[in-house]
Amino acid sequence: MLGPTQISQQSGAPTVHPVVNRFVLLRSLMQRVVVFVVLLVLMSLLPRLLPGDTLDVLLDSNVQRGLQNSEIADLRDRLGLAGSLVEQVGRDLARLAHGDLGYSLLHGAPVSHLLADALPWTALLIALATPIFLGVGVTLAAEAGRQPGARADRVITTSMSLLTSIPPFITAVLLFLCFGILWPVLPTGGAEPLFPAETPLLRAQEILRHAFLPSLALALHEVVRYFFVLRGEVAVLASRAFVLNGRSRGISGWRERRDYFGRNLLAVVCARLGQSVASLFTASLFVEVIFSYPGVGALTYHAVLDRDYPLLQGAIAVLALLVLGLTWLLDALTEILTRRG
């Protein structure tokens, strides 16, 4: 009797060795390291090409009248704003290479402390948005793709097509208007009330209420992407022999959606999830500004306006490290799921 290896060799099927997968993952990791370094260089260079710098923001016209040019030049040197563009970028990269994110003069605090305070709020929004867009996106894709061309498919696909034309910041504004002004049932600003509750349970409920609308705006941004990708996969699966055989044996409803569609979509969901993480961090910039939410997105937005170079570079560096690391882990998980079939 021939073993599995001999059968695969005689049939001409290629044998995939685990080393190949490790090499692919290592190459993917090195590509992300290169992207991270290039991003750090760009985020140190590009903000300095904008008009004005940190000192120009700090010095208003009244204060500037009382300072001599020599004093302003001395301040610029002490703030690390003197020298050529290459020298300034080199100082930034050397500081980041030593793990020093710098100090924000406008906030009067180390950048690491500011990010440590803001990052949990952004993570909360993404953590709440992820199960929403995954659940809704997978469910609608399964309902539309299991019978392509049917009435449910036409209605759902048309609705998703309309939703995909709305940018995330417009979605956030519409939610703000609907549930904050026209029907004011949810808070539309901040992460907590002005006077937080004393008990942990009530405070957690207040935090969730404040985070619901921003997380819903992020979720709607990703639902459409998942729907169109997964609907095509479900439509292909619906024509496969094992699904047709299952239906002929009377399998339908929840069991069909879970066992025949859901399990076969896991690899696709994981592969798309890496892109969703990066997209959600980008969309949080607009959503947090609209809802005055104290996350990394709002912090980055104000850092651009204030020409706060250390804060902007630190925020981008931390976000890039998180996104690239998470996408690499999700790529590894997708590779495992794909190999398992």
Results as ranks from 00 to 15, higher is better:
20 V>C: 04
20 V>W: 04
22 R>W: 15
24 V>L: 15
24 V>F: 14
27 R>Y: 05
27 R>A: 07
28 S>V: 01
28 S>C: 12
29 L>W: 13
29 L>Y: 10
29 L>I: 10
30 M>N: 03
30 M>T: 14
30 M>W: 11
31 Q>L: 15
33 V>W: 11
35 V>Y: 05
35 V>P: 03
37 V>C: 03
38 V>M: 12
38 V>W: 12
39 L>V: 13
39 L>M: 14
40 L>P: 00
41 V>K: 00
41 V>T: 10
42 L>E: 07
42 L>I: 08
43 M>R: 05
44 S>L: 03
45 L>P: 02
46 L>W: 03
48 R>Y: 01
48 R>N: 00
48 R>C: 00
49 L>W: 00
49 L>N: 01
50 L>D: 03
50 L>V: 03
51 P>H: 01
51 P>W: 03
52 G>E: 02
54 T>A: 15
54 T>M: 13
54 T>H: 04
55 L>C: 13
55 L>N: 02
56 D>C: 04
56 D>T: 09
57 V>S: 06
57 V>E: 07
57 V>A: 10
58 L>Q: 08
60 D>R: 10
60 D>Q: 12
60 D>N: 15
61 S>R: 12
62 N>R: 11
65 R>E: 15
66 G>Q: 07
67 L>N: 10
69 N>P: 08
70 S>M: 08
70 S>P: 11
70 S>V: 12
71 E>F: 04
71 E>L: 13
73 A>C: 13
73 A>T: 15
73 A>F: 13
74 D>W: 07
74 D>E: 14
74 D>T: 10
75 L>S: 03
77 D>E: 15
77 D>V: 09
78 R>A: 10
80 G>T: 06
80 G>P: 08
80 G>W: 05
81 L>G: 02
81 L>F: 07
81 L>R: 00
81 L>W: 01
84 S>P: 08
86 V>Y: 09
86 V>D: 06
86 V>C: 02
86 V>T: 15
86 V>N: 07
86 V>S: 12
88 Q>T: 05
88 Q>I: 01
88 Q>G: 04
88 Q>F: 02
89 V>N: 00
89 V>P: 06
92 D>S: 10
94 A>I: 05
95 R>K: 06
95 R>D: 02
97 A>P: 08
98 H>M: 13
99 G>A: 07
99 G>D: 10
100 D>Y: 08
100 D>F: 08
101 L>C: 09
